[in-house]
Amino acid sequence: MFDPVERAPAYIKVSSAIEHKILSRALREGDVLPAELELAQQFRVHRSTVREALRQLENAGLVARPPGAKRMIVSRPEAAKVASGMRHALVLHEVSFVDVWEAMMVIEPEVAALAAMRRNQADLVALTQTSEAFRDSPEGDPTSVNIVALFFEQLGAASRNQVLVLAKQSLAQCLAPSLARMIDTVPQARARITDAQRRIINAVRDKNADEARKWMSKHVRDFKRGYEVAGISPDTPISV
């Protein structure tokens, strides 16, 4: 009737115990963990078990070893790493372009509206510089898609909402390969992206949330039209 209970390896139990301390805020970012030998004594396990547990936590971004340091410190997973893990999950679940696009249609206009309400002067400077970098990038430049992604990332930062920042980064990564193809294939793509970025920046500068939301909606909607012109099927599964 019942399956045997699996016994978790000792390193997983050690990793889980340390992870619980971190997630419960008993250990906070920047706190220095005890040395491996001391941890081994506390958990009553071999030092190699502690080392494997710390390796697992490091891979998850919960601990890190600063350059030249002998002991681990509690860290915060980088947004890019979280987004990368989410992107892998979406790929494995065979999510299509249209699924990602629909999510962007929900998230990105609200991010732009929040950015308009919460931005500071540094945000405006960063957005303007990024938009100009895209405008001035030559045809066929493989870094163009990274510049477009950076524009979305900077808007997320200006929104001052970390949940939205983490959610949207994985979506941008998912669209990157097909976006690069669209930019290089559709003749008017660069001009339309540049125009949309300019109008979004103007709305953000004027703190006009409704205008920022409207132009971001048009911008993301334009992506779908560009993909169709480029011959990319909406049902095409995203790839890494």
Results as ranks from 00 to 15, higher is better:
74 V>Q: 00
77 P>F: 00
78 E>V: 08
80 A>I: 06
81 K>Y: 06
82 V>R: 02
83 A>Q: 01
83 A>M: 00
83 A>R: 00
85 G>P: 01
86 M>G: 12
87 R>V: 04
88 H>P: 02
88 H>L: 09
89 A>H: 08
89 A>C: 07
93 H>Q: 15
95 V>A: 14
99 D>R: 03
100 V>L: 02
100 V>D: 02
101 W>C: 11
106 V>M: 13
107 I>C: 09
109 P>K: 05
109 P>S: 08
109 P>Q: 08
110 E>T: 08
113 A>D: 03
114 L>M: 13
116 A>L: 08
119 R>D: 04
120 N>A: 10
120 N>Y: 09
120 N>F: 09
122 A>W: 14
123 D>T: 04
127 L>A: 02
129 Q>C: 15
132 E>T: 09
134 F>V: 00
135 R>Y: 07
135 R>K: 05
136 D>F: 08
138 P>S: 06
138 P>A: 09
143 T>K: 11
146 N>G: 15
148 V>L: 05
148 V>W: 02
150 L>I: 09
151 F>M: 02
154 Q>K: 07
156 G>I: 02
156 G>Q: 00
160 R>H: 12
165 V>W: 10
167 A>Q: 11
168 K>L: 12
171 L>A: 07
173 Q>G: 14
176 A>G: 06
176 A>H: 08
177 P>V: 02
179 L>P: 05
179 L>G: 04
180 A>P: 09
182 M>L: 09
182 M>P: 06
184 D>F: 02
184 D>G: 07
185 T>Y: 04
185 T>A: 12
188 Q>S: 15
191 A>K: 12
192 R>T: 10
195 D>E: 10
197 Q>W: 04
197 Q>E: 06
